[in-house]
Design a binder for these strands. Sequence first.
DNA 1: GTTGCTGCAAACGTTTTGCAGATCG
DNA 2: CGATCTGCAAAACGTTTGCAGCAAC
Lengths: 132, 132
Amino acid sequence: MSKKDIKDAGLKVTLPRLQILEFLTDHKGKHYSAEALYDEMKAADHDIGLATIYRVLNQFETAGLVCKHQFEENQAVYELDTGEHHDHMVDVDSGKVIEFYDAELEKLQVKIVEEQGYELIDHKMVLYVKKK
Amino acid sequence: MSKKDIKDAGLKVTLPRLQILEFLTDHKGKHYSAEALYDEMKAADHDIGLATIYRVLNQFETAGLVCKHQFEENQAVYELDTGEHHDHMVDVDSGKVIEFYDAELEKLQVKIVEEQGYELIDHKMVLYVKKK
DNA sequence: GTTGCTGCAAACGTTTTGCAGATCG
DNA sequence: CGATCTGCAAAACGTTTGCAGCAAC
């Protein structure tokens, strides 16, 4: 139902937006940098400029269609937002990203911030790991 | 014991390095961007080029003398590494950074990665919070 | 037809680098 | 004195933006 999602975001349903959203939908759980997505689009014979990729990803992020992460400090990556919150571990050897969700961890975070008199708005968590 | 730390890192004890390390030592637990540090050095009448600040911070990070964090996605900040691990929460209204350590949280992370057959190498965690 | 979108190239802010001269040991 | 370091300016990097033409509705 990608067209509807774009429309609901108050955006025109254009070819670049459809193609990007379709690609991310077909690759749920995978993470792409703007540049990587640019190459993927080119490989699929979709001629989209890099600037458009950035613009569309930002719009999609605002609309809650994609999530943006910063696993490496110099480049952001994006993935489709499926609505199911999860955190990530990155295998430092292979670069592989593993998604996980841990209810206890989520609860603990709320507890920690409340102990300090705060309310949890958002969090960022990446575990860097290595195969045993 | 700042001179010794610099020497132990295999670096020459130069004025810029001493002045930067001294400043960070005098401001434990505070976080500075390279640019902010540059301004602080200028304010203290220490004429250090921005490129040198970056170079020295990178060398200090490699040597384990300072920690680098990415609270906002466009600018890294540095703080003295006191050897005591801690995580951070950022007040989204004031920008204030609060350090905390939670043993349970640390244990839980190890448990989570071990369940997946991994070993925890490092982690990155920032809680974005708001006063209640 | 009007509005909003796209591509291109140029601009941006942060960080890195090449190099000639200065400093450390 | 030799090795390393510094400052400067220029380059590099990922990302954003201005603008003229194009696509969507």
